[in-house]
């Protein structure tokens, strides 16, 4: 199969959904997002490009990858990045134990096979005739990235928190992200059987390299506006009353206007909504908010600065 044919084959191996279909799919999976997100996923799927998702923690970057896997009905492979992650943990590793056994077996067999050779030279010559299996795919232990490439079926590959990994690892990824192939020095290049849909997420703890950025479609997910957040809450916590939902979202939106160490994320709004539901609350009042504020704010300084302003934020929300 020529390269062009291979590319054509690869291109068709991903499901082909329109933006509207994606939107519906995400809604069914309970992942509520704006058109910006679906457009980016649509383009990534059509252009065979990875998506680099950036944004503050808790806006649903990882969720997006998971939801996409469900919507496209593809297997989900995840690689969590951290400092010190290298190719042996992310791409492949040799099965040393098996290789060792193989050399033992080889040693035993070889003495029998080569015993009738007269001298060393002819023995070496004969040895060259055997195929070299020591470094072959048989002894290769695939890690997430290689797994995503060797899968017969397309998959959704999530490379989570890429900004936590080292620069070297970022460089390893370049080949994978542009050509969907990986070079293993002992074997050669392994190309994707079916192109995976790749999501990379970053919290911007460090600046990513230009080379990596160039290969991706960028998606910045910001905190949702009040309307979108209301929809999210009603989808994730459907039991909540309308009044409470309105008040809760307005309050969270109000808190996000303040200068805080960590702004409350969508996941925290959801947690808070669930907690309020457990407490059988119908509406928000200052006392209830103060009692449960720690579900929304995770830093002591933030709690201290927001608590005195609770009444004010609630009133503003009403207006």
């Amino acid at each position: 199969m020529s390269r062009a044919q291979l590319n054509a084959y690869i291109r068709h191996s991903l499901p082909d959904l329109s933006i509207e279909e994606l939107e519906r799919g995400y809604a069914t999976e309970g992942y509520i997002c704006n058109e910006h997100v679906t457009t980016s996923v649509f383009l990534a799927q059509k252009m065979d490009k990875p998506i680099l998702v950036e944004g503050p923690p808790g806006v649903g970057k990882t969720e997006l990858a998971k939801a996409t896997a469900k919507v496209l009905d593809l297997p989900f492979i995840r690689l969590q990045c951290y400092e010190g992650l290298d190719e042996s943990k992310a791409i492949y590793e040799w099965k040393y134990g098996k290789q060792l056994l193989y050399t033992q077996v080889l040693k035993d067999k070889l003495s029998g096979i080569l015993s009738d050779e007269k001298d060393l030279q002819s023995a070496v010559h004969r040895l060259r005739g055997f195929s070299d299996t020591f470094y072959s795919e048989e002894f290769l232990e695939p890690r997430p990235l290689l797994k995503a490439l060797t899968n017969e079926q397309s998959s959704v590959l999530l490379i989570d928190e890429i900004d936590k990994s080292d620069y070297e690892f970022e460089a390893f990824l370049l080949e994978l992200l542009s050509d969907y192939s990986i070079s293993i020095p002992e074997i050669g290049t392994i190309s994707a059987k079916a192109t995976p849909m790749v999501f990379l997420t970053s919290n911007n703890t460090r600046e990513l390299g230009d080379a990596l950025k160039r290969r991706c479609i960028h998606l910045f997910i910001e905190f949702p506006d009040a309307e979108l957040e209301r929809t999210i809450i009603s989808s994730r916590v459907p039991e909540i009353s309308e009044t409470l939902r309105e008040q809760l979202v307005d309050f969270v939106q109000g808190v996000r206007q303040l200068e805080l160490k960590k702004q409350p994320a969508v996941s925290e709004t959801i947690d808070w909504a669930r907690a309020l539901l457990l407490l059988h609350a119908d509406s928000l009042d200052a006392a209830l908010v103060k009692r449960t504020l720690h579900l929304l704010l995770k830093f002591r300084q933030d709690l201290e600065s927001v608590t005195p302003q609770v009444e004010e934020i609630l009133i503003k929300g009403k207006i």
Binding site: E35, H36, S40, L43, E54, K213, R214, I217, H218
Partner: peptide, 15 residues
């Protein structure tokens, strides 16, 4: 909106 999202996604690489 889509045009903006698409061009932004491909061309803008930082905040």
């Amino acid at each position: 909106h889509r045009l903006k999202a698409a061009l932004g996604g491909v061309l803008a690489k930082s905040e």
